[in-house]
Amino acid sequence: MSRPLRSFIKPQFIALALILLLNWILFPGFFNLFFRDGRLYGSLIDVLNRGAPVAILAIGMTAVIATRGIDLSVGAVMAIAGAVAATMVGDGHPLFLVIMAALAAGLVCGLWNGSLVALLGLQPIIATLILMVAGRGIAQTITEGFIVTFNDPGLIFMGSGSILGLPTPIIIMVTLAALATAAFRLTALGLFVEAIGVNRSASTYAGLRSRALLIGVYTFAGFCAAISGIIAAADIRGADANNVGLWLELDAILAVVIGGTSLMGGRFSIPMSVVGALIIQAMNTGILVSGFPPEFNLLVKAALIIVILVVQSPLAGRIWYFIAPSRKRPPPSSPAETPATSTEGTLK
């Protein structure tokens, strides 16, 4: 059974193409690529490279949001992982150990978040706010308040090295996205995550281990944040507990939402979240190369959020349905009145 080609034409791809085109108009050299010292260079590569940290955060965030949760702490967890990596490499530990320790720090942070949500039943937004606030303090404690710099070539490679001609962050992003997608979709994990996002009580009745699953997705988000943290630290060759990953949790959430995963939980797509992150980065880059002031970026982002919310609204779904030539295909978002919205009037 082959899906019709047009079901692959997603609004996100159109948006990405438009933004890239706009960049090209503003900066005609945008699509130029050149090969130097065994590595590809060019603005397009730059978008992928710069977008990788947020894309990696978005991979973990996708799973969390699919369970109807949210993780506000990933930026702070980046700082913790970066701090662990920088201090340990400064103390002369071998690279393998350094990476393992930084990843373990991320896992522990995720485990903490997951336990608060799944075992204590805290609201995800509150539960992860705790670490969002405390995390940078923890990172500073690890670095003892300094910006710890390093010049270990192995660790720096994570941020600015290249593999097969492509920057390491891109390779890491693509590998992680592929592995995560495989882990969710070639097993039943993806279905389970969607099920608890749609209805946790019914999922428990059906025999899912909702608690373990929830802890699992937050741990995964912590793990992804740690990878992002290592890349970000390696990129600037130092751990800046105060600034690394600042506000990136919001970019990650935005990326997931652009990718089409609903904040109400349920259906998710990791590759589309990565596309979402790249859309955000393409915008950032575009504003940078076009010479607009960076503040402009925030306004454009706000405008983008509005556009997305409108596009994903049920109204747009219906309009899309009526203008689409083939009436066989269901519209992208909820087509008609759903029972939920139709009966809520009982008490109004």
Binding site: L191, E194, A195, V198, N199, S201, A202, S203, Y205, A206, G266, R267, A340
Partner: peptide
């Protein structure tokens, strides 16, 4: 509604 169906998922799932 509360403990049974997974509303957004398909009949198959």
């Amino acid at each position: 509604k509360v403990d049974g169906i997974l509303g957004d998922l398909t009949v198959r799932e």
